[in-house]
Amino acid sequence: MSRTLIIAEHGGGRLNPATAKCVSCAADIGHPVDIAVFAETAADIAAEAAALTGVDKVLTIEDADFGQPLAAMIAPEAAAMAGDYSHVLGPSTTYGKDLMPRIAALLDVNQVSDIMQVTGSHRFQRPIYAGNAIVDVEAPEGAPVVATVRTASYAAAGNGGSAAVESRAAGAERPQHSRYLDLKSEGGDRPDLQTASRVVSGGRALGSADNFELVYRLADKLGAAVGASRAAVDAEYVANDLQVGQTGKIIAPDLYMAFGISGAIQHVTGIKDAGTIVAVNKDAEAPIFEIADIGLVGDLFQVIPELEAALDDG
């Protein structure tokens, strides 16, 4: 019964990439991996899941009630399936965070939240205190492990698989107390700073609110959200809600590009979990270079237009 079940996340008829990251985590646990797809129509999603490297079986559970991501609908069904598994994983997205604890409670276990590393079949590392401490957690043997996977800690599994797809009938009783109404994607053209996968940020070196246009233009070219250092906010180049850092937003985009930001500890606290940090600053001694994955010493007024041109070229 050493087997891992991953609850697939999907939307708009596509598999969410977070699921592929769970597969990578499950691979570290080492047991055979199945993926459960709860959907109204599961075929396309299941096909994507079946193509993920390292997946043994894809189980589809189709029902009109599963057309929308309602935890109260899915949890009883998932919990009923869990009897065949030692581990049940979901992504640490709002979907997984909503659903997985409900499954865990039905199985009478605590959940391991936000796995960042697997150190044994029942041993994991996870962050607490907003990532300011990492704990080793051991789940008890003899009970299912229900866990969410911190997506930023795992690369997506590849597409080299060809798992069998099996259909399962839904059997558990479903509640009538919850109804899905709608989903609105937020904001206008620019992504939300808090959740964007790319962020372009500017500091006081921009020199004026007008010059901040440069940052906006580059961000739009990259489909990125715009952020700012506190110094830029204090100088009133941009509004307070763009502030990244200790007293602003704590963010973890895949790509963070800092222009003319010195990298005070207060700012760095807000981006410490970012995937890749790029820093462009005139001052080669700026502390931001000590934590940047890619650094460029240069004048942002030159570098940004050059970057735009380079992006246009290729």
């Binding site: 009478d108 276990v109 605590n110 391991v112 962050p127 990532g131 300011n132 401490a133 990492i134 704990v135 080793d136 957690v137 051991e138 789940a139 008890p140 009970a143 760095v268 410490k272 940090i277 790029v278 462009v280 270079f289 000590e290 934590i291 940047a292 994955d293 890619i294 650094g295 460029l296 010493v297 240069g298 570098v303 050059e306 970057l307 041109a309 380079a310 992006l311 290729g314």
Partner: peptide, 27 residues
Amino acid sequence: HQLSVTRHAPPAQRARGVMVESAAELV
């Protein structure tokens, strides 16, 4: 069933990465 927390550690610090010379190299 309880989880047991066996050890606390500070998070890994970010390290200095690579330096590039130009916008083109950065891209």
